[in-house]
Structures are given as structure tokens and as C-alpha cells.
Design a protein around this nucleic acid. Structure first.
Length: 870
RNA sequence: GGGAGUUUAGCUCAGCUGGUUCAGAGCAUCUGCCUUACAAGCAGAGGGUCACUGGUUCGAACCCAGUAAUUCCCA
């Protein structure tokens, strides 16, 4: 059979993936085997695959594939998130293009559009994951708005409300005046903005004196109800208890004193607008200040403002500055670098706003979640994230869960005309509950809350609800807790922490054992990859160019847990090259099939090669298992890479390769197949397509297991560190000989004679491999130095290769002198150490011994060079 | 403003208990090679004041303090 010299992933990957699906190898149902479960961080239902997903899902696939091969019942649950605000924004945008305004639609009509949009664009991302090779159990695909999932979210709300953990209250929230909804803190992006600091003059009541107050938002004076100074600020002590007149508005407000005010900032005086600033609200509650809400939901000035009514907030800011200036009440303005909150979705400036919202009281709920991360019941990788987790959980605030949107889980609260309400699963239950309390409202009287729940209020149940855990214990008991969660550190608070909270609250156990935090994928300039910057490559195109395996390797080559990944296409190129390298190793071994000569004995050089390679495999396997335990994925990949490229291809295959025109003995051939098979197994999680393709080409492998993805992971055996040590000497020897060849321009075809000085303890175990690999015609033991010749020392044994005519003797001697000088300097430093009494007294024996060995090695090398120089 | 990191070769990173795993890896670079699996390759080589300053120690990339640069999270 003809195998092309270049591996072409495009012809392979779809075929292999189709085979896996057809054989249902990713399917999982509870059985006798131990479960190993991962739930996917559900991407936005209408989203498309970006590089962050690629990284994330490659890691998950790797973990799940390895687990599957290690004999676990591996279950990777895929699914998507309804992404309330993002999806609704897209639907609104699409409708607008069609000339339809959301406000003209009924809720039901809008929902129809939203579902239509979801069905049209939903699931694209899941198909893209298949290209990547993701071995999810696709039959389990879940969506956070599936009927059963929906129900669990509503039941959770009702339950927490019953427990008194959910309440309704007036709070300062982040208001998006464009989307007309409250946002969670996490949906607000703080940007540094060059703005102005306005210095406003407040007349002190009953005097002609003025107090100057600095503010970035002069329009909010319409809502001022106090001015605050620091009690320690001596400049203003005389004003405590006095009143000042708000400029233009002419309202008299008290001067209050609170430590909150920073003496250094501005003039040290703070205007207090309780309705329009989080901290001012706090001051307002503390000092019982009047609350004037001077702004409408859309960001225009309200009736309560009294002036500029109906005008837009930023227009008023400019206007009021002019008017203040005209009235002589604007002392000055300064440039000021200010942090301003913007809406993640609409990119408008957030308005702090008082409003009635639903909250979850997190204080008690979060306790087990904090404790069990800190005590490593749930382990974070890398562990440094425990610090910020603790910081957040210890200062946790109540969670605002209502959103003024339609796309999502509608809050199950039913209001009576008198404003009283009941939380119930449906309107019938609500009527019954009202009646139980003696209120005889009928269904027609009641109105359900218009708002929906924060998306995270559904996704925090993900590890439970994907198994219908609220309604059936069967699957939950088997699959939960899951093994690993792979996600980005940015959503540690709004997702990871809350899943842990929900896990303890509803299952009484943690949702996952390990959390692996990936880094952020950045471009070469260190910028985060984003659609708006247009600096993100299209993952699908990348996979077409380099193959899914190449891209997987590229992503993992440089991404230790928690570290950002500076993405560069050259990494994928490296991955592709690696695939090709293995492919060609396969071609070589495959070609031996026809060269087997049963009459041949295994040559000694091959026997040692097999022995060493098997030993090497065990050694690296042990290192890899250790790396996996610590989630040091990129290190494991690099170990695998070097094991295959360097150890197997560069050394083993070269040693085992029959000489030109010769056949191969069947023992070496079979040993090589066994070695190759193990290598492919440990490589499979990284490069599933390539390894499966090769597996399918080799009948003897297929007879062990139909497919590599369900074959058995190699069991760890012991290894002999001595063999590796001997190999390293051999490696050095080969390199020295190659250098000599290079110096003389001697091609490998020409055989060489190598001599070595008779020594008692020279190890000869690799001699056969040495003569085979380096084309040595004679390897002689001599008792006298050979001159003139190249000489070098490997582990205390001196080797000689006679000069041929073309050697530049002068240059050789100059080089030797250089080395001599270096060795003498080295010796001096070692001897200085050894003559230091305190070192000799304090250093451990092993260190001392090492230093003495350095000394004796250096001495013998120096002697050898001196002799060579004559 | 509060908190958490990071700084080692041109790039991306290892370096675990202070000492032979101690200055390393991959990529990139340079020099030879179309050598009968692979030029997407082979063989070899060069490359670092371990951010800076001080301290502890017989001994510091590693521990301590300070400085600088930088990233992230929170307000």
C-alpha cells in the first residue's frame, strides 16, 4: 500500500470522527466502571467558536480521552447557555434591522422571534467542537432553557425564597440606560476616561462665604441632599452642623462629617447624591438623608430634578456647567483621569440607580463553598487562585438576580393589584397561596413579574441539572461529583463559586474535584483576542490549515495552567510538523513489513535499542503521570514530543533501522510495533485523529483494540535509571564522533576506526549500537595514546580517531588550549570551595562528594589535554 | 485606593526542599547537508549580569527587605 510522505489531516479527520460517532464510543451510561465526568462550560447558544473555546475544550477533551483509556466510564456532557442578555441583544438588533421595535411586540411574540433565532444559530458552536475532535456524549446535549432545565431553575428560585434566601429589595444597581435593564457588577466594564473635574461653589447658609466641592458629575447636583467632609479635616471643622446652598438649585442641605471622605481628593468636600451613587447611598442611609431620584430610566432628567427635565444626562452636564459658570458658581475645571463603568453589551455609561430587584442572600450559602476550597476538598489549579477566591468569598455581597429582559427564566412571582405578591410555580399555585392567606385574588387579577433571572442563576445549577438532578437521583448519584472543571479565571466568581455554592446547597457535595483555570488567549502584541479588535484567527480556518491535531498541539504547547497564552500560528505549524514527523516514522516502520526476514537473528544493536527504548518509555511515562496529576499539561505534551521525536525517531529508529538493502528480523519488527503502539496511546489525547488513523492502518494493533480511543492506557512499570545513564554516555560518544566526521567532512558512508584507552571500568553495553549507528569498522582498545589524532573523553574514557590528511592541526591545538584554560579556571573554583573549611564542615556528604568528583574529572581532563598538546 | 501575581536566552516558559537535574527546554537564529521515513527533514553550533539594590548563609535564580517595570481582579 502506498502511503504519501505528507500527512493530510483534511482527508482524515471527518472520516475518523464519523467512525467514532458511528461506533458510539463517546456514549456514556451508568455502569460498573468508575465514572469520570466533565461538564462543558456551556458556550452561548448562538455564539461561534473562538480561540478561548479552542483552548478550553482541547484540554477537556484531552482529560476525558485519557480517562476513557484508563478504564473510566468517561462522560463529557456538552451543551449551551441561553445567555440572556447577549442573545436578547442580538435578537433586538436583528429585529431592528427588519424595522421592528421590541417595544412594539408582545412578550410572546418577542419570545417567538428569540426561539427562532436560537434554533437558527443554536448549536453551530457544537458542530465546530466536533471538528476539534471533542469526544462529548452528544446525546446528552443540554440547553439551559430546555423544559426540564427551566423547571429546575424555577424550583430552585422557589426553594431559596421559601428558605428566606431570596428577597426583594431596593438597592443601588448598575443600570444600563440603553438596554433599560439592571446589570450585575460583572457585566460592567470599567474604563479609564479622560474627563473633567468641576469645582462647584456652595454658599454657606447665612453667610457670604462659599464652600468648594469637586465633582465629575455636576448634573447630579439636582439630587444633592448633603455635603460631606472628613471629621479630621481641620479646614472644615467650623462647618459641622451648618447648612450650605446647592448651586442653581438653591436647596439648603446639611454638612455632614464622615471618615469616608478622602481629605486629599479634590477640595476634601464631597457632594452627596444618595439616589445616584453607591457610596452616597450608603451615606444617605447612615445619616437618614432625603433621596431625590432625578433621573429617568432612559437617562433623561426626571420631574424630581426640577430643572432640565426631559433632557439627556450628558447634554445637561455641558449645559449645567455653562449655567453655573454664568452664575459665578463654577470656581474652575480641571482635567481628570476617571474610571467610568460601561455596559458590557451596549457600551453606554452605567448609571447607578435605585430600583426594586430580587437578591440572593449569599452570606450563609457561601460558607461551605469557601471552606472546601480553602481546605483543598476542591482543588484549584494553579492554586494561586485560592487567594482571590477567598478574598471574594469573604467579602461576598448579595447577588442581584433579576434582569429587565424577556429572554430567560421568568421570575415566578405573581403580583396582586394591591402590590402583595406570592412566589409560586404557576399562577394556579399563586392563587391558592393567596387564598390560604385570606386574599381572594383570581388568576385574572394576578400579574407575573416581567423580569427574568440572571443567566448565572441557571448556569450555577449546570453540574446538577444536566443530570436532571433535581428530579432523579439515578444519574446524579453516578456522575456527580464530576471530576474536573476547565474554565477561565475571569468567571471564577460568577460561575465557579456559585456552582460550588449550589452543589453544597442542593446535593450536599462539591460539584467537581478539580478546577483547572486556563489563561486568556492573546495575540502576539499581548492583546486579548476579541471580535472588535479583529485579531482573532478563525479556528475553523486554522484547523483547515494545520489540522485539528496541529492546532490542538499548538494551543497546548505554551499554556501552563493559569498563564495567558500568547498565540502565534507558528505554534500550530510546529504541531503540524510534529504530526508529519510521526506520520513518516509510521511510514518507515510500515515499510519494514515487507522486509521481514524470518531467518535473521535480532542483531545486538537492535536488542540494546529495544531494551533502552522500553526503559526510556517507562521513565517518561512516570514523569507524564506525575505531570497529569499536577495538571501540568503543556509539560506532559513536551515530554511526549521529545519522547517521540528525539528518543524514538532520532535515536531508536536509527539504531533499529536495518542497513541499506538488508532485511529486518521479525523480533525487532514486532518490538518496534509494540513500542510504537504505546507511544501512540500516550499521544492520543493530544492528537486523536492522527493516532487513530495510524491505528486503523495496522492490523496487529486493531486486533488488540478496535480503535485507539478505547484501547488501554499503558500500565506503568519500573525502569532502570542506570540504562538511561549508560545511554547518555553513548549519546555523548556518538555526538563526539559526528563532530569529528564533520570537521573532516567525512560522510557517514565511510567507515571509521575508533580507539579507546584501556580503562578498568569502561561500559561496553552500547558498543554494538555505537558501531552500527556511526559506521565504525573497528573499535580498538589501546594502551598508549595515539598521536596525531582527535581525542575526546566520555565518562573518563579517552577515545582517539586518527587524523586524516585534511586536518588543520594548528586550529585543533588552539581549541584545545582554549578548553584547557577553561578547565583550569573551573578547577580553581572547585578547589577554592573544597579548601573552605566551613563548606567542608557544613555541606552534606553528597554535595562534598560531587565537588570532589568535579575536581578529579577536571584533573584527568587537564592531564589528557596537556599530553595531547605535547 | 484595596488585593493577587509576574520579571530567567531573540520569543514562550521549566527550574519542586537553598547545594550535580543548576543555569535548562521548545521555538527562532547560525553553519553544514536533497544521507535509501520525513527539507513540514537531518547533523552540529552559538546565545543568559536569573529586573535592580541590599540582607541572611559556608553556599542564593530560589529565603528576607526595599526599588522599578508589568499583568489581572475588586472598588
Amino acid at each position: 500500500m502506498e502511503i504519501p510522505s505528507k500527512y493530510s489531516p483534511n482527508e482524515t479527520e471527518d472520516r475518523i470522527y464519523a467512525m467514532w460517532l458511528e461506533k458510539k464510543v463517546f456514549k456514556s451510561l451508568p455502569n460498573d466502571k468508575p465514572a469520570y465526568t466533565i461538564v462543558i462550560p456551556p458556550p452561548n447558544v448562538t455564539g461561534v467558536l473562538h480561540m478561548g473555546h479552542m483552548l478550553n475544550n482541547t484540554i477537556q477533551d484531552l482529560l476525558i480521552r485519557r480517562a476513557r483509556m484508563r478504564g473510566f466510564n468517561a462522560c463529557w456532557v456538552p451543551g449551551t447557555d441561553h445567555a440572556s442578555i447577549a442573545t436578547e441583544a442580538k435578537v433586538v438588533q436583528k429585529l431592528r434591522k427588519e424595522g421592528i421595535k421590541k417595544s412594539d411586540l408582545s412578550r410572546d411574540a418577542f419570545m417567538e422571534h428569540a426561539w427562532e433565532w436560537t434554533h437558527k444559530h443554536g448549536g453551530i458552536i457544537l458542530d465546530q467542537l466536533k471538528k476539534l475532535g471533542a469526544s462529548c456524549d452528544w446525546d446528552r446535549t443540554r440547553f439551559t432553557m430546555d423544559p426540564k432545565y427551566y423547571e429546575s431553575v424555577i424550583d430552585c428560585f422557589i426553594d431559596l425564597h421559601k428558605k428566606g434566601k431570596i428577597y426583594r429589595g431596593e438597592r443601588m444597581i448598575n443600570w444600563d440606560p440603553a438596554a433599560l435593564t439592571a446589570l450585575s457588577d460583572e457585566e460592567v466594564i470599567h474604563k479609564e476616561i479622560q474627563s473633567k473635574l468641576y469645582f462647584l461653589k456652595y454658599q454657606i447658609e447665612g453667610t457670604n462665604e462659599f464652600l468648594t466641592v469637586a465633582t465629575t458629575r455636576p448634573e447630579t447636583i439636582l439630587g444633592d441632599t448633603a455635603v460631606c467632609v472628613n471629621p479630621k479635616d481641620e479646614r472644615y471643622t467650623h462647618l459641622h452642623g451648618k447648612k450650605v446652598i446647592v448651586p442653581l438649585v438653591n436647596r439648603a442641605v446639611p454638612v455632614i462629617a464622615d471618615e469616608y471622605v478622602e481629605i486629599e481628593f479634590g477640595t476634601g468636600c464631597l457632594k452627596v447624591t444618595p439616589a445616584h451613587d453607591q457610596n452616597d447611598f450608603m451615606l444617605g442611609e447612615k445619616y437618614q438623608l432625603e433621596v431625590i431620584n432625578m433621573m429617568n430610566a432612559d437617562g433623561t432628567i426626571s420631574e424630581a430634578g426640577g430643572m432640565y427635565v426631559g433632557q439627556e444626562r450628558f447634554a445637561v452636564r455641558d449645559q449645567i456647567a455653562k449655567d453655573l459658570d454664568a452664575a459665578g458658581l463654577l470656581a474652575k475645571t480641571e482635567e481628570h483621569l476617571n474610571k467610568v463603568g460601561y455596559s458590557e453589551r451596549t457600551d453606554v455609561v452605567i448609571e447607578p440607580r435605585l430600583s426594586l430587584q430580587w437578591f440572593v442572600d449569599m452570606k450563609d450559602l457561601s460558607k461551605p463553598a469557601l471552606e472546601n476550597v480553602m481546605n483543598d476538598t476542591i482543588r484549584f489549579f494553579p492554586p494561586k487562585f485560592k487567594n482571590s477566591y477567598r478574598n471574594w468569598m469573604e467579602n461576598i455581597k448579595d447577588w442581584c438576580i433579576s434582569r429587565q429582559l424577556w429572554w430567560g427564566h421568568r421570575i415566578p412571582a405573581f403580583y396582586a393589584p394591591d402590590g402583595s405578591f406570592e412566589v409560586a410555580k404557576n399562577i394556579e399555585d399563586a392563587v391558592a397561596q393567596f387564598q390560604a392567606k385570606g386574599a381572594s385574588w383570581s388568576a385574572a387579577d394576578l400579574k407575573q413579574d416581567d423580569d427574568v433571572l440572571d443567566t448565572w442563576f441557571s448556569s450555577w445549577l449546570w453540574p446538577i441539572s444536566v443530570f436532571d438532578g433535581f428530579y432523579s437521583k439515578e444519574e446524579l448519584d453516578y456522575y456527580y461529583p464530576t471530576a474536573d472543571l476547565v474554565t477561565a479565571p475571569e468567571i471564577m466568581f460568577f460561575w465557579v463559586a456559585r456552582m460550588i455554592v449550589a452543589g453544597y446547597e442542593y446535593v450536599g457535595n462539591f460539584p467537581f474535584k478539580n478546577v483547572y483555570y486556563t489563561g486568556i488567549v492573546r495575540d502576539k502584541q499581548g492583546r486579548k483576542m476579541s471580535k472588535s479588535l479583529g485579531n482573532s484567527p478563525d479556528p475553523i480556518e486554522l484547523m483547515q490549515q494545520f489540522g485539528a491535531d496541529g492546532v490542538r498541539v499548538g494551543m497546548l504547547l505554551s499554556s501552563p495552567a493559569g498563564n495567558d497564552l500568547p498565540f502565534d500560528e507558528s505554534l500550530c505549524e510546529q504541531g503540524r510538523n510534529f504530526a508529519n514527523k510521526i506520520w513518516n516514522a509510521f511510514r518507515l516502520v510500515k515499510s519494514w513489513e515487507e522486509k521481514i526476514d524470518a531467518s535473521l537473528e535480532q542483531p545486538e544493536s537492535s536488542a540494546i535499542a529495544v531494551k533502552w527504548m522500553n526503559n526510556r518509555f517507562e521513565q517518561v511515562l512516570a514523569e507524564m503521570e506525575d505531570g497529569y496529576d499536577k495538571f501540568r499539561i503543556s509539560e506532559v505534551l513536551m515530554q511526549t514530543y521529545k519522547l517521540i521525536w528525539d528518543d524514538f525517531c532520532a535515536w531508536y529508529l536509527e539504531m533499529a533501522k536495518p542497513s541499506y538493502g538488508k532485511g529486518i528480523d521479525s523480533k525487532t519488527y514486532n518490538d518496534t510495533l509494540d513500542i510504537f503502539q504505546n507511544l501512540l496511546k500516550v499521544l492520543h489525547p493530544f492528537m486523536p485523529f492522527l493516532t487513530e488513523e495510524m491505528w486503523q492502518h495496522m492490523d496487529s494493533w486493531k486486533s488488540e483494540s478496535e480503535m485507539i480511543c478505547i484501547s488501554n492506557w499503558p500500565a506503568a512499570k519500573t525502569f532502570d535509571a542506570n540504562i538511561q545513564k549508560e545511554f547518555e554516555e553513548f549519546e555523548q560518544l556518538v555526538t563526539e564522533v559526528r563532530n569529528v566526521r564533520k570537521k573532516q567532512n567525512l560522510p557517514n558512508k565511510e567507515a571509521l576506526v575508533v580507539s579507546f584507552m584501556k580503562t578498568a571500568n569502561r561500559n561496553s553495553s552500547f558498543d554494538a549500537a555505537f558501531t552500527h549507528l556511526c559506521n565504525i569498522s573497528e573499535l580498538n582498545e589501546v594502551s598508549e595514546k595515539m598521536n596525531p589524532s582527535f581525542s575526546f573523553m566520555v565518562n573518563g574514557v579517552e577515545y582517539f580517531i586518527p587524523y586524516t590528511a585534511s586536518v588543520d592541526v594548528e586550529a585543533e591545538q588552539a581549541k584545545m588550549k582554549e578548553e584547557l584554560a577553561y578547565l583550569e579556571g573551573f578547577l580553581k573554583s572547585v578547589e577554592a570551595k573544597l579548601s573552605n573549611e566551613r563548606f567542608v564542615q557544613n555541606a552534606p556528604a553528597a554535595v562534598l562528594e560531587g565537588e570532589r568528583k568535579k575536581q578529579s574529572d577536571a584533573l584527568s581532563k587537564i592531564a589528557a589535554i596537556k599530553e595531547q598538546l605535547g
